[in-house]
Design a protein around this nucleic acid. Structure first.
Length: 420
DNA sequence: CGTCCACAGGAATGACGGGCGG
DNA sequence: CCGCCCGTCATTCCTGTGGACG
C-alpha cells in the first residue's frame, strides 16, 4: 500500500475541487430538477391525444358526477404517470375554482407496500385520520366509506404501479374498492389504475377487471425523434444557455430509443451527463459525457443489484463471471453448477441443488444480469446456455464493491483445470 | 429413424419466519 | 400475547424434449 499517501492527496484535491465548484455555483445547470422524473412540466410533447382522452374521461367529476374507472397501461418511461399527474393537477385547479368537493389522491402502490398503507393514504386525503397500525383492513375500509359518505366527497383514487399490490397481496382491496359505490349515498369513488405490466389483466378476478377497466388507455413507447423533442424541451429549462452540445441530446434520445423508448432513461442520461461535466469543471456537455453517463448508470445499477442479491445468487453470478473470464462465454448449466459447488465449498457455504441453481439462473436472467436460453446439443444433451448480460468489467467492478466477494474476482477455479 | 444425452421445468412437499386476527 | 396462517425458499421426484449420432 505504498500508494496510500498519493491516493489521499488525490482525494484531498478532488474534495477541494468539488467544494470550489459548488461554491462558485453551477455553471452547467439552471434548474437541475427539471430532469428528474417526478418533475411535471407545463407541456408533455407527443402525449396530447392521451391528455385529451383522459381529461374527457375525468371531466364529469367537475359537475360532481361519478366518472368512469380507468386503467392505464404502458412500459416505464412512456409518460403514464406524468400525463396522469398533469391532468389531475389541472382538474384539481379547476375544481378549486368551482368550489367542488372533488379530491384526487395519488398513491404509489409499490412505495406504500401494503394494502393497509394504500388505504390509509386514501383516508388521509379525505381528512380521516387512521392509526399507523393495529386496525383490521376491513375496519379501516368501513371508516373510509363512512367518511366518504358523510363528507360527500367525490374521490378519484390514482393507484400508480397498481400491479405490485395485486401481485403481492391479491386483489382483495381492489375488489372492495370497485364495489364501494354500491354502498354510498352521498360520496363517490372512482379508481384510476396505472400499470407497468401489460399482463396485469391476467392477475385479476374478471369481476374486478371489468369494473376497473371501464376505460383503458395504452401508452406506447416513444421513438427517437419524440424523445429528442422531449429532451430538448426539458433541456431548455434545466441547462444554462449554450452549455449543451447538439449531438449530446441526440445521442441520449438514440440510446433510450434503442431501449424500449424509455423517456425516464433518456432524462437520466442527460442529467448524469450534465453532472459529470459539472464535476469535471467542463463548460459544455458533449456526446462523450453522455457515453460516460451511460457507463456510470449501468455501473451503479449492476453494483447495486449485486449488493442486494441473496448469497447463493451472487455465487451463481460469480461462477458465470469466472467462466466468462476463462473465455467460456456461454456456459452450460452443468458447468456453472460444478463451479458453483466448488465456490460454495471454498467460501464455507452449503450448496443448493442443481434444480434450485437452475431456477436462480432464470431469476438472474429476469433481473437482466444474465442471458440464458435453452439449446439442444443433440447427442450431447439439452441445456441452458448462459452468459453475462452486461460487460465483464462492470460485473467485476460490482463484485469489487461487495465486501464479502471482493476477494473472489481473481479466483482461479480448480474445476476448470481438471476438465479442460 | 430411433436412441439417448443432459438437462428443463412442473408438482408436491417441507422448513422457516413474519404478520395478522382473536 | 399466542397460535395460526400465509408467503418464501429449497428439496425431491418426476416427466418432457431437440437434435447429433449411430
Amino acid at each position: 500500500m505504498g500508494s496510500r499517501d498519493s491516493e489521499m492527496e488525490g482525494q484531498e484535491n478532488i474534495l477541494q475541487e468539488i467544494f470550489d465548484n459548488f461554491l462558485r455555483g453551477s455553471t452547467v445547470f439552471k434548474r437541475r430538477e427539471a430532469l428528474r422524473h417526478d418533475y411535471v412540466p407545463d407541456s408533455l410533447p407527443h402525449r396530447e391525444d392521451h391528455i385529451r382522452h383522459l381529461a374527457e374521461i375525468l371531466a364529469p367529476a367537475l359537475r360532481g358526477s361519478l366518472c368512469s374507472n380507468v386503467l392505464i397501461y404502458g412500459k416505464t418511461g412512456t409518460g403514464k404517470t406524468a400525463v396522469t399527474r398533469f391532468v389531475s393537477k389541472k382538474l384539481a385547479e379547476r375544481a378549486e375554482v368551482l368550489g367542488s368537493s372533488l379530491k384526487i389522491c395519488f398513491v404509489n402502490c409499490r412505495i406504500a407496500g401494503t394494502q393497509y398503507r394504500v388505504l390509509s393514504a386514501l383516508c388521509s386525503e379525505i381528512g380521516l385520520r387512521v392509526p399507523f397500525t393495529g386496525l383490521a383492513v376491513g375496519e379501516v375500509f368501513d371508516r373510509f366509506k363512512q367518511a366518504l359518505d358523510s363528507r360527500q366527497v367525490l374521490l378519484i383514487a390514482v393507484l400508480d404501479e397498481i400491479d405490485t399490490i395485486v401481485r403481492n397481496r391479491g386483489d382483495a382491496l381492489l375488489y372492495e374498492l370497485t364495489r364501494a359505490n354500491a354502498n354510498l349515498q352521498n360520496g363517490k369513488l372512482s379508481i384510476l389504475g396505472i400499470s407497468n405490466d401489460l399482463r396485469f389483466k391476467e392477475l385479476l378476478d374478471p369481476r374486478v377487471m371489468s369494473t376497473l377497466s371501464e376505460e383503458e388507455l395504452v401508452f406506447g413507447p416513444y421513438n427517437a425523434d419524440e424523445l429528442q423533442n422531449i429532451l430538448e424541451a426539458r433541456a431548455r429549462i434545466a441547462f444554462e444557455d449554450n452549455v449543451l452540445k447538439q449531438g449530446a441530446v441526440k445521442l441520449c434520445a438514440a440510446l433510450a430509443a434503442a431501449e424500449h423508448g424509455d423517456a425516464r432513461r433518456a432524462l437520466d442520461l442527460l442529467r448524469v451527463a450534465g453532472e459529470l461535466a459539472e464535476r469535471n469543471g467542463d463548460k459544455h456537455v458533449s456526446e462523450d459525457h453522455v457515453r460516460r453517463a451511460e457507463k456510470r448508470i449501468e455501473h451503479n445499477r449492476v453494483a447495486e443489484t449485486i449488493k442486494t442479491l441473496p448469497t447463493h445468487s451472487k455465487i451463481v453470478l460469480l461462477s458465470v463471471y469466472l467462466l466468462n473470464r476463462s473465455n467460456i462465454n456461454r456456459s452450460a448449466t452443468g458447468d456453472i453448477y460444478n463451479l458453483y459447488s466448488e465456490l460454495c465449498a471454498e467460501l464455507g457455504f452449503g450448496s443448493l441443488t442443481q434444480r434450485r441453481v437452475s431456477g436462480l439462473i432464470n431469476e438472474l436472467d429476469v433481473i437482466g444480469l444474465l442471458n440464458s436460453r435453452v439449446t439442444s446439443l443433440g447427442r450431447y444433451g439439452r441445456t441452458k446456455k448462459t452468459s453475462l448480460a452486461v460487460p465483464h468489467k462492470i460485473v467485476r467492478d460490482g463484485f469489487l464493491e461487495d465486501d464479502r466477494f471482493r476477494g473472489m474476482v481473481d479466483y482461479t477455479p480448480r474445476y476448470l483445470s481438471s476438465s479442460l
